[in-house]
Amino acid sequence: MTADPPRRGDQSGRGEQSRRGDAPAGPRRGEGPRWVDLPRRADQARRAEQARRVAVTSPRTAAARRPRYPATREIDEQTHLGEVYMRSLLRTQFRLAMFVCTVLGCVVGGLPLLFLLIPRLREADLLGVPLPWAVLGGLIYPAFVAGAWLYVRQAERNERHFADLVERR
C-alpha cells in the first residue's frame, strides 16, 4: 500500500488547492506577479499564513484524501474494485449492443410477419414501386447505415467515459 506521496497534491480536489502550501503557480488575486521582489519578511509572513490555513481544514477532508490506487492499477492487479470497473464497462457496451440487436431483430424479424399477416402490404405501392421492393431493395440500407453510425458514436462515448473514470483518481 504505497501510493506515491509527491503526486498526491497535484490531482486531488480542485477546491482545496488554494488552501495548500505546495499548490498553484499562477498569480493570485491581491498579489503582484511572482517576480516582484517582495521584502523577505512579508514573504515569510505569507507562508506562515498559508501554513495556518492548512491547519483549519476539517479532519474529514484528511480522511477523504487518504492515498488511493489509480483505477488502472486496480484493474491490472485484478482487485475487487478493478473487477467492478471492468464489469461496468462490459455491461454498458453489452447493453448498447443488445439494444441495437433488439431493434434490428424487431425490424428484420417483423417484416416477414407483417407481410404474412397483412397481405395488402405485399402488393401496396410506394411512389410507383412495390412496397416490399422499396423497403428491402432500397430503404433498409440507409437505415442500417444510420443505426451503425449512432452505435459507433455511443460506443465511443462509453469508452471515453470509462477512460475518464479510470484515469481520474
Binding site: 421492393w133 442500417f144 451503425a148 452505435y151
Partner: peptide, 18 residues
C-alpha cells in the same frame, strides 16, 4: 430473395455491434 443481400449487408451491423 431480396432478403439475401439485406442479410449479407446487415450481417456487418451485427458484426459491428458485437
Amino acid at each position: 430473395m431480396l432478403w439475401l443481400p439485406v442479410g449479407w449487408t446487415g450481417g456487418y451491423l451485427v458484426l459491428l455491434v458485437l
